[in-house]
Design a protein around this nucleic acid. Sequence first.
DNA 1: ATGTTGACCGACT
DNA 2: GAGTCGGCCAACA
Length: 109
Amino acid sequence: MDQQELSTYRKIYETVKMIPAGKVATYGQIARIVGGCTAIMVGYAMAGVSDPAIPWQRVINSRGGISIKDQSGYSLQKALLESEGVVFDQSDKVDLSIFGWQGPELQLF
DNA sequence: ATGTTGACCGACT
DNA sequence: GAGTCGGCCAACA
């Protein structure tokens, strides 16, 4: 992993840290905000995270669902989000029009 | 080096 | 809604 990749990963983590509690963002959204990386890179970055300061659970897929295949990881993420006030519907999906993070621009206001 | 998979996305049928 | 495809790129065998 060279310096450019480390920089990109740092940006990913910085961006994820900006997501407020009770809100969620999608992999593609993070990738667009960071720039120069793709959604699946964000997924890899989240999988390898060890820093508890990073709210990795607030990153979900574009359909508002959890993408973790591991069952325990899946239920853990869902539980963490529900404890923050995020609501899942009958299909285990989050309504992004309600809980979706609008991006870092919103925080300037 | 090559092929496959993946906590993915978007467009298309 | 479901299934397919191409694209992106890191990790792994």
